[in-house]
């Protein structure tokens, strides 16, 4: 992983992925009312003392939202940061409920795909993985 961490981000690849889903995702992002009514539908939010960082909307806005806002120009350290959001803080159970109808799971899945395109993904045999991932 050390070599991968030093490598730079292939911005073209990230941009291609974002562009392929732009119509759908930009619309979803622009119609999130930031109302937080999705929070209770996330079992992790409920299980983590209602920590706002586990709200579905928080997770989407701080991963995919930032990727689109920065038009894909992000550093590897940022991908490492959103790796924690989209894998550790979300299990992609697809049970989140948005009153407006924003498809939150697909946005998380796209954020994961962007990370994967740069070789950023969880290692399930890394030291202490039980604590950090499961």
């Amino acid at each position: 992983m050390a070599a991968a961490q030093q490598a730079t981000v292939d911005t073209g690849k990230v941009k291609d992925l974002l562009a392929a889903h732009r119509a759908e995702m930009k619309r979803y992002l622009s119609h999130c009312m930031h109302c937080t009514l999705c929070a209770e539908s996330c079992f992790l939010f409920m299980a983590r003392d209602k920590d706002p960082r586990y709200m579905p909307s928080y997770k989407v806005l701080n991963s995919l939202g930032v990727l689109y806002r920065r038009r894909g120009r992000v550093e590897r350290s940022f991908l490492e940061k959103i790796k924690k959001i989209v894998w550790r803080n979300c299990v992609l159970c697809r049970r989140c409920y948005c009153p407006v109808g924003v498809d939150i799971p697909r946005m998380i899945a796209l954020a994961r795909a962007v990370c994967r395109s740069q070789g950023v993904y969880p290692d399930f045999d890394e030291q202490g993985h039980q604590e950090s991932w499961l």
């Binding site: 619309r27 622009s30 119609h31 999130c32 009312m33 697809r94 049970r95 409920y97 948005c98 407006v100 109808g101 924003v102 498809d103």
Partner: peptide, 22 residues
């Protein structure tokens, strides 16, 4: 052109896109 667009998109999302809660 802003997130007030949920005025029309609420109905489009809720009625036309398939999903658990549509």
């Amino acid at each position: 052109f802003t997130k007030l667009g949920h005025m029309i998109y609420f109905f489009l999302y809720r009625f036309l896109l398939p999903g658990e809660y549509s």
